[in-house]
Nucleic acid binder design. Structure first.
Lengths: 244, 244
DNA sequence: AAGAGAGGGTGTAAGATGTACACTATCTTG
DNA sequence: CAAGATAGTGTACATCTTACACCCTCTCTT
């Protein structure tokens, strides 16, 4: 080597913030640690990156081992490298966040997944390592992403109602939106296809179901849009809960 | 240890994309490599992170050693970890970008800085390692940041004209803007203070000088704004040049 | 079967913002 | 003093954003 040997003594990991949406609530998939360090605490799913493995590959591997899902939304967010963040030595971690449909996940319970559980993002308490910081960074990223790209749709089932979509935006943006203005805006984008089908089995007037138009969707993925709506003045604001 | 020894064999570095603005052109500070690998090629300034050093500290160190500057804008962007990106072994790099005033830099030429030189971002050719990708990622980040935060001012001298400010936006956004609309928009933000001073020594009618209002500036740093102006239809578009 | 409960669904007017566009003013230099 | 260079300025039109309230349709209960 060349005198740099002292630098080749660190390890790195990926940690994955997996978001899902259910019952009007934004959730994150956490794992109860079965081993030291931080045994028994909730943590983000993650693992060491293998010597011959790319970062994105590692993040995908962690995601797939846990959820059985491939080819879902996954994006690098930020790298955390505080000197003493891991008791085994110098370990820096590259954080990723992904968006999945909870219903897809629950169909494929993998082996590790037994220790995994969905937690409401707003109610997450103390996590292992610096995982609260990581969650917080990824949640912020999701928050701005949702204004610029149609990411929301990664989180909903194939058929959804406008109210479900609105609740998703409200959960991510931690705000409340005006129903009429929300509908006007989202429908004017030509992003949604009216399925002419209706909800079933609900104890009220059933809502119309929509899906998104894949062409328009990918166009917006690439070009972005500007989704701005002021908080509605009439309802109360939803509250955060991360790092209070 | 605990069976994880095999993972503690990698190294990590920081690489810093230092942007400056001069003569209507967005520049990046590059270093001609004096050693292998990639000896003789232009590269981003960077170095290994020391074993007891935080990532942000390392990035600041690299910046200060090169420019003599402290407390300037510096932000983490993305981590690159392709398996074979470095010939010495597994090295992942955390990229940062910073914004400095070129005039501040040129006052303090440090020792390493002898190999350093400003290059027009639009004309950068092949760089060492994967540094073209890193530059590209950081430039993209700057591009969206400039729409949401008043970062532009990190790059200009304390007193500047509206035309200089407009040229800065045009260089970053790679577009051209309508003069009247640009002025209307930027002045309506109450971000600028009219100094009642004028340019000197120019061969035409001198322009008024402005500075930014620090209170308003920090408010926008924290809250963000939405700087959108359509490309002017009258002039041609500036072109990019990165990864053509 | 009638009423209560629970969301679903709809339009408009006023204000704010964005866009397109062209000419005069003021300075230096030759 | 003319030419060259850039500074500086206003308006009309179109588009987008915001605030706001009521009736509709379904189920469930009694």
């Amino acid at each position: 080597m060349t005198g740099f040997d002292n630098f080749f003594k660190s390890a790195f990991t990926v940690d994955n913030v997996i978001f899902g949406f259910d019952e009007g609530d934004l959730k994150v998939l956490l794992i109860k640690r079965g081993e030291e360090p931080h045994k028994g605490m909730w943590a983000l799913p993650g693992y060491f990156v293998y010597p011959k493995e790319d970062l994105d590959t590692a993040a995908n591997r962690v995601l797939e081992e846990l959820t059985g899902l491939r080819n879902v939304f996954l994006e690098q967010v930020k790298t955390f490298g505080a000197v003493n963040r891991h008791p085994f030595g110098r370990v820096i971690t590259v954080s990723y966040f992904s968006l999945i449909k909870i219903e897809d996940y629950s169909l494929q319970p993998a082996s590790i997944a037994r220790k995994a559980q969905w937690h409401s993002v707003a109610k997450v308490k103390e996590l292992a390592f610096d995982h609260n910081d990581i969650l917080s960074a990824c949640f912020s990223r999701l928050k701005w992403l949702v204004r610029l790209r149609p990411v929301g749709f990664e989180l909903l089932p194939p058929k959804f109602t406008l109210t479900e979509l609105q609740h998703l935006y409200e959960a991510i943006l931690e705000t409340s939106l005006d129903k009429r203005n929300f509908r006007k805006k989202i429908l004017s984008m030509n992003l949604l296809v009216d399925l002419n089908e209706w909800q079933e089995g609900v104890a009220h007037r059933p809502a119309k179901l929509y899906r998104f138009d894949p062409d328009k969707y990918h166009q917006f993925q690439a070009e972005g849009f500007n989704f701005e709506l002021k908080e509605s003045k009439r309802k109360e604001r939803r509250s955060a809960g991360i790092n209070p």
